[in-house]
Design a protein around this nucleic acid. Structure first.
Length: 860
RNA sequence: GCCCGGGUGGCGAAAUCGGUAGACGCAGCGGACUUAAAAUCCGCCGGUGGGAAACCGCCAUGCCGGUUCGAUUCCGGCUCCGGGCACCA
């Protein structure tokens, strides 16, 4: 036995034992309850960051806890290996994305192993392998056959200098990241998946997910965005032809207040009007500049220009001017909106800016309407009544919508409609490092799907992107192919798939990663659904929604039977660290917190911070997510090397509950290390006493220790079940404190019992340390198969309890009573209490509230 | 701009159903051990007023208001911070 705690030795020994016994292999065992514990797979960016350590420690704690509880647990790991950073690295270093990616995977796998996660590495997968992505291609072709995948144009960010499509991330303040050129919107052909067909189910099925956080379900519901309204038409005549300008509105009750219509810059009406109107043509061009990001669109200055054209109001017959608005998007509905400046905040501002009429058509009693400024209630639809609306005057929101929809319907100018905010999923990317879209372009036959027997379409792994577009375009060996239909020379599609495709079904493939003949097999129904999914809150919408959609498509294709992929979801908070900087001229220079020393006053309150190197002050701009740009990252590798994996894991679990953000603290890490060392030293010092004891005969002197240990165990069990691991970690500290206090008074049997509980409570968090101590103290040969300890209810029993005394809700003392004392006896004791009497001060007692087991409140 | 979440001591946090606010830890202060340092151990540790002390009072969970015998917890409004916004993953 080592007297000193040496994490490196302990962890090597434990990991070798697990490796040798195959402790983490998951084998389908019908009849045994299964638990599929999945953490979001990492993007192989180079090395693990603290967010990974946190994510995978949470998963590992759940995995090991459920094994203790008798579940057959699967915890797999893989690599979300396609993506933009590999291309950026290629541009920077000239290394092919494939090599960069595979090197990163090898390094990060080593790191994951050093953290001791109970992963079944035999199921490892990487999405950049043809064995994996061939099934992306295969399923895409099935979707194409079913009409779920289809082709249409989409808008992308276009860098006019580099002549390439930019990702949103590559657009900074409306300009290309490398060229600085103003980005343009450009329409190109793309492939889309009809996720909108699944919108109703994606929305209603949220109710079947009690294990998901409410806030995530709420975000998804808002994202899907069901809204009921009226699709209505403004008729107009263009070059002698009768046409309809269609708009959707949720406020048909305000139709009588329409004073203009606005169309997107790309709308045919705008194009027509701009033909002989150079200023308008210039404005339309201006609208096409800037990024396609919604946040940019929503915050940009609302601008418009009159087209000079008019449409006819469908009910009043009035002429309504048509404007081009930079805030109207062609992709939503039909690219046109009706303007009701009296009751829509955006329209109000637009009308004020351009001098358009503003008409009040609803009112809320007692609230004056004024054109001076926007008031929240103008848009109210809960207590409003129509005014200035002719026959609709006096109707409330719903009655007005019904009546107006009916009148529009009678004229053929509209009907009620349910619409969704959700848009179809565009999966085409004009990039190299992704799954090739399995299509062939033939001059004679058009877009021809690659036949199944020619899958996978293998991505060449030796390309090096240079920023000038997709390098596949310069690869004749990839491009040139015979048309599968007519046999004539044709061209392969060079677009690849969105990497969200890869991550939309990887959790299914872990069940059968070795199956070369089919995408899924009968091992999938054994493991699915995922019982616990763990990942960053930043994935609350897109990845999770796409995965749900993909699952439903595969179900409808008869490939799987589950409706939802993830039964329970835990969204972990981000890992933050302080940001230190100095202004050097115009730019900010950031310093890593490890190089900064905090100055405090004699109460420990911070008074400043200096750079260790030169002793000069640095400024802080608060805390933020660990990032390269802010130089506030902490490398997990250094942490593991200095303190060991168990300390890293313990610190991560102890410092914050899983769903909250976690703030880095060097001294917090040292505190965690100190605690684990105390556990080790305690076990060594006591091993002679408790290592050999058999039996569970306790003495009267053991009652205090046993009550404390079992009370804490009960709480820790509850906390483990609700995944509040920070208090599980502190439970370990409390048990150790109790054990140390009891040395000398409690019997060896009680100390042994408490130590066994301590090791098993800590095991899911710090498996290495507890694995070694468990066998050294003779509890058993292998803690990985030990059960979670049971609470001994008898140890919790008390004959007397303490009740808090309050007068008017303020704490005024306490009394000790027998645990089965009657209400009358308690009231009597409380009223007799001198301190209570002092504060009652002779006033008449109005009532006495007795909360059993807790308190007595005397109200005067 | 829109959607979602959060704010409790010097710091990370705890408080399970509305019932003793601050468990556990970090930092700090005081002490023991030591030639010394490190490590370890013991004690104190929200603010404020009174008191020599024991102790007693008042204030305090971002801000303002409400419900309640009683609010960190429930409701309304505000404010600041964080996440997402469809081509970062």
């Amino acid at each position: 036995m080592e007297a000193q705690y040496r994490p490196a030795d302990v962890e090597r020994s434990a990991q070798q034992a697990w490796e040798a016994s195959g402790a983490h292999r998951a084998v389908e065992t019908p009849g045994k309850p299964k638990y599929y514990c999945l953490s979001m797979f990492p993007y192989p960016s180079g090395k693990l960051h603290m967010g990974h350590v946190r994510n995978y420690t949470i998963g590992d704690v759940l995995t090991r806890f459920h094994r203790m509880r008798g579940y057959n647990v699967l915890q797999p790991m893989g690599w979300d290996a396609f993506g933009l950073p590999a291309e950026n690295a290629a541009m920077a270093n000239g290394v092919p994305p494939a090599k960069w990616t595979y090197d990163n995977i090898a390094y990060m796998k080593k790191q994951l192993k050093s953290l001791g996660f109970a992963l079944d590495w035999e199921r490892e997968l990487a999405t950049c392998r043809p064995e994996y992505y061939r099934w992306n291609q295969w399923l895409f072709l099935r979707m194409l056959e079913k009409g779920i995948a289809y082709r249409k144009t989409g808008v992308v960010n276009w860098d006019p200098v580099d002549q390439t499509v930019l990702a949103n991330e590559q657009v900074i303040d409306g300009r290309g990241w490398r060229t600085g050129a103003v980005v343009e919107k450009r329409e190109i052909p793309m492939y889309y998946l009809r996720i909108t067909d699944y919108a109703p189910e994606l929305l209603t099925a949220l109710d079947s997910l009690p294990g998901w956080p409410e806030r995530v379900k709420l975000m998804q519901a808002n994202w899907i965005g069901r809204s009921e309204g009226v699709n209505l038409a403004f008729p107009y005549t263009l070059e002698g032809e009768s046409k309809l300008l269609r708009v959707f509105t949720t406020r048909a009750d305000t139709l009588m207040g329409v004073t203009f219509a606005a169309v997107a810059a790309e709308h045919p009406l705008a194009t027509f009007a701009a033909r002989n109107n150079p200023p308008l043509a210039a404005f339309v061009e201006e609208c096409k500049q800037g990024s396609v990001m919604e946040a940019d669109m929503a915050t940009l200055d609302k601008k418009g220009m009159d087209t000079g054209l008019t449409v006819t109001h469908p009910l009043t017959g009035a002429e309504i001017p048509v404007w081009v608005g930079n805030y109207v998007l062609m992709g939503y509905g039909e690219g046109a909106v009706m303007g009701v400046p009296g009751h829509d905040e955006r329209d109000f501002a637009f009308a004020k800016k351009y001098g358009l009429p503003i008409v009040q058509v609803t009112e809320v009693p007692g609230k004056p309407f004024s054109l001076d400024g926007w008031q929240e209630w103008y848009a109210d639809k809960t207590s409003c009544r129509c005014v200035n609306s002719g026959k609709y005057d006096g109707l409330d929101y719903q009655a007005a919508v019904d009546a107006i929809a009916a009148d529009l319907g009678a004229k053929g100018y509209g009907e009620k409609q349910t619409t969704w905010r959700l848009r179809d999923w565009g999966i085409s990317r004009q990039r190299y490092w992704g799954t090739p879209i399995p299509l062939i372009h033939c001059d004679a036959c058009g877009d021809v799907p690659v036949p199944d027997d020619q899958l996978p379409v293998v991505l060449p792994e030796d390309c090096v992107p240079d920023g000038s577009g997709n390098p596949l375009r310069n690869r004749p060996d990839f491009l040139d192919v015979d048309c599968p239909k007519c046999g004539q020379p044709a061209r392969r599609e060079t677009d690849t798939m969105d990497t969200f495709v890869d991550s939309s079904w990887y959790y299914l493939r872990y069940a059968c990663p070795d199956n070369a003949a089919s995408m899924v097999d009968d091992r999938v129904p054994y493991w699915m659904p995922v019982d616990q999914y763990i990942g960053g809150i930043e994935h609350a919408i897109l990845h999770l929604l796409y995965s749900r959609f993909w699952t439903k498509v595969m179900r409808d294709l008869g490939l799987i039977t589950v409706d939802e992929p993830f039964a329970n979801l835990l969204t972990q908070g981000m890992v933050l660290n302080e940001i230190f900087f100095r202004k050097e001229g115009a730019r900010l220079v950031y310093f890593n917190p490890a190089d900064v020393e905090i100055r405090t006053d004699d109460k420990g309150a911070r008074i400043g911070a200096v750079l260790k190197r030169d002793g000069q002050p640095v400024e802080t701009s608060g805390i933020g997510t660990m990032s390269k740009s802010k130089n506030n990252g902490v490398d997990p590798q250094a942490l593991i090397e200095q303190y060991g994996a168990d300390t890293a894991r313990f610190f991560m679990m102890f410092t914050s509950p899983p769903e909250q953000t976690l703030e880095w603290s060097d001294s917090g890490v040292e505190g965690s290390y100190r605690f684990l060392r105390r556990v080790w030293v305690f076990a060594q010092e006591q091993s002679a006493t408790i290592g050999a004891v058999a039996g569970t005969t306790f003495t009267a002197a053991d009652a205090t220790l046993r009550r404390e240990v079992h009370t804490v165990l009960k709480q820790a069990t509850y906390d483990m079940e609700r995944k509040q691991f920070n208090t599980v970690a502190s439970a370990g500290m409390k048990i150790l404190n109790a054990l140390q206090d009891a040395v000398g008074t409690a019997s060896a049997a009680a100390l042994r019992e408490g130590t066994g509980i301590l090791l098993r409570v800590l095991y899911p968090v710090t498996p290495h340390l507890t694995h070694v101590l468990w066998s050294e103290l003779g509890f058993g040969s292998d803690i990985t198969v030990a059960p979670w300890p049971d609470v001994d209810a008898a140890a919790l029993d008390r004959s007397e309890i303490e009740l808090v005394l309050q007068v008017n809700g303020k704490l005024r003392g306490s009394i000790t009573v027998a645990k089965d004392a009657t209400r009358e006896a308690i009231e009597h004791l409380a009223l007799e209490n001198p301190n209570v009497q002092k504060f009652v001060d002779g006033q008449p007692v109005k009532k006495v509230v007795v909360v059993p087991g807790r308190l007595v409140n005397v109200v005067v």
